[in-house]
Amino acid sequence: MSTLYLVGTPIGNLEDMTFRAVRIMQEVDIIACEDTRVTGKLTHHYNIKTPLKSYHEHNKDRMTEVLVAMLKEGKSIALVSDAGLPLISDPGYELVNAVRDVGLTVITVPGPNAALTALMTSGLSSYSFLFNGFLPRKESEKYAKLNELMQQPHSILLYESPYRIKDTLMTIAKVDAERKVALARELTKRYEQVVTAPVNDLLTRLENDIPLKGEFVIVIDGQYEVKNVEQWWDALTINDHVNHYIAEGQSSKDAIKQVSVDRNMKKRDVYNSFHIQD
């Protein structure tokens, strides 16, 4: 019977491939993957001869129809990502829904996951956690999202590139400079590194003790008790607060929006304070 298999693959060390995953990838008719070059290294290592087809963010709409048609013809397909579990911060749920809509079978073949691997080794609480994948790139939106997440009594799991890790740690420090954070890089590989410390300490160790190489997982300790955290802008008036963001290059509209988020105020009230003079 034709089946869509969701197959977990190694996040670094190729020896983390399961016997079942190898067998399924050998038995299916097609392996749908993000990058055929990346998955090709894995299939070559395990002598898997199954043809590869690209399935990624930019072609998922067209390829979902193609793959569903193949399944309806009686073929079976394995969906994999470049590393770890498919669908986790990667496209694929649309394909799962489309396959189920036509009455065909979806089976999961579990495997490694970078976020959970980092949480396991971080030393931070693992009883409850929130996974948020990648943060917004725009600074004001990133700050707003982190400010929201870091008020929660759960560990926060994030992905970040080596090119943005420093900026993201600086934004975390704006929310709470003393919050304990774990940085995990090169997980399961030869130079695996997991460092847990207050975020300000991590910032001083970047580039020297912590090379900016490899994809990062960030684990942020939850806020488990209510506390009054002193904010950098507490001594500023609302107008000075807005002008601070304008001086950084934001438009007055964006600066007012950010101040409303910082101070948990209505945007209209910040606008009126800034624009209406006595």
Score class of each variant (00 low, 15 high):
Asp240Gln: 15
Gly249Ser: 05
Ala235Ser: 14
Ile218Gly: 01
Gln223Val: 05
Lys253Met: 03
Gln223Met: 14
Lys253Asn: 05
Asp234Met: 08
Ile220Lys: 10
Ile238Met: 11
Gln231Met: 13
Trp232Arg: 07
Val226Lys: 15
Val259Phe: 06
Ala247Arg: 12
Tyr245Arg: 00
Ile238Arg: 00
Ile218Val: 14
Tyr224Cys: 01
Tyr245Leu: 10
Ala235Val: 02
Gln258Trp: 08
Gln231Glu: 12
Lys257Pro: 00
Ile220Gly: 07
Ile218Asp: 06
Ile220Ala: 11
Lys257Tyr: 10
Ile256Thr: 03
Asp262Glu: 13
Lys257Glu: 08
Ser252Val: 13
Val226Asp: 12
Ala235Asp: 13
Glu225Arg: 12
Asp254His: 03
Gln231Cys: 03
Gly222Thr: 04
Val242Ser: 09
Glu230Arg: 12
Val229Gly: 04
Trp233Cys: 00
Ile238Phe: 04
Ile256His: 00
Tyr245His: 14
Ile220Trp: 10
Asn228Trp: 04
Glu225Tyr: 12
Lys253Thr: 14
Ser251Thr: 14
Gln258Val: 02
Ser251Cys: 01
Trp233Phe: 10
Ile256Asn: 01
Ile246Ala: 04
Ser251Trp: 08
Ala235His: 13
Glu248Ala: 13
Asp254Ile: 01
Asp221Asn: 15
Gly222Val: 04
Ser260Gly: 04
Ser260Leu: 00
Gln231Lys: 15
Ser260Thr: 01
Gln250His: 08
Glu248Arg: 14
Ala255Pro: 05
Lys227His: 13
Gln250Pro: 00
Tyr245Lys: 06
Val226Thr: 12
Lys253Trp: 01
Ile220Pro: 09
Ile246Gln: 08
